[in-house]
């Protein structure tokens, strides 16, 4: 296992985001973490990356408890182990595509500019954007920005890449490109991928293992096939995208007739 999460609890204010969660992320596979919006999927990635500290429990990445590392050790560990693709791409807006991908190489290595150029062009070639290297982030579409961010995330050849909602808001073609890229990168580079998403079909199509989380707990986990045949009505509703089920269509409220009768009072 590359990532082992044990007894993880985390809360924001009075709201518990995770309550005693256990999870294992296998090495060299694509693991999906799915769940409705607002269940703390992004928070989980930030906890794994050491950007947030859990209230209780441990997160071990490659055998190392990330929250026991000091500031410098954590940064060195991230440099060696992790890449992360943010939902927005998180490209540096004052640098063009080329310089964005070159950024981690320039910051962390003493490679000459000619070597950096080769590496950047190869990484951009892998995501199909070598020709867009002089564009500024503002000139890129959302899908292109994520592809550049992916090229940047693999620039230092990390062991693991975490994808935060990579498919959200993408047109079908961009979505297809991203699905293919995540799948191909994982297999070509021998990476471990963690994909956080609620795009069930796309995510399930490339995942080896899926965790479904809701209300601070792991509701179900297993292969995508297993989840599609899950006995849980909640999981079935989520995986099939049904409008009504254990998660009701209506937000809890008084009866409609009662509400309508009260409407004259202006409430």
């Amino acid at each position: 296992m590359l990532v082992e999460i044990r007894g993880l609890s985390f809360s924001r204010g009075n709201r518990a985001i995770f309550d005693n969660v256990d999870m294992d992320i296998p090495r060299g596979k694509v693991t999906a973490i799915m769940g409705p919006s607002g269940t703390g999927k992004t928070t989980l990635l930030k906890l794994i990356g050491g950007q947030l500290k859990p209230d209780a429990g441990t997160i071990r990445v490659d055998g190392q408890d990330v929250h026991r590392l000091g500031h410098n050790a954590l940064y060195a560990f991230r440099r060696r182990m992790m890449g992360m693709l943010f939902q927005s791409g998180a490209l540096l807006t004052d640098l063009n595509v080329y310089d964005n991908v070159a950024f981690p190489l320039r910051e962390h290595t003493k490679l000459s500019e000619s070597v950096i150029r080769h590496l950047v062009l190869l990484k951009l070639q892998a995501v199909g954007l070598r020709g867009a290297r002089y564009l500024m982030p503002a000139e890129l579409s959302g899908g292109m920005a994520r592809r550049v961010a992916l090229a940047r995330a693999i620039a230092l050849d990390p062991e693991m890449i975490m994808y935060d909602e990579p498919f959200t808001g993408q047109d079908p073609i961009s979505m297809g490109v991203l699905v293919k890229l995540i799948h191909d990168m994982n297999h070509a580079l021998g990476l471990t991928s963690v994909v956080v998403s609620h795009d069930v079909r796309e995510t399930a199509s490339i995942s080896d293992y899926v965790y479904v989380i809701s209300a601070g707990k792991v509701v179900e986990h297993g292969s995508p096939e297993k989840l599609h045949h899950s006995g849980s009505a909640w999981v079935k509703q989520f995986m099939d995208g049904l409008p009504d089920g254990p998660v009701p269509f209506h937000y809890p409220a008084n009866g409609l007739i009662d509400d309508l009768m009260q409407s004259e009072q202006g409430k």
Partner: peptide
């Protein structure tokens, strides 16, 4: 726009 978080994850303080 998560640029600061992005830097942290790239191990750039």
């Amino acid at each position: 726009t998560e640029q600061l978080s992005g830097m942290e994850m790239m191990a750039v303080d």
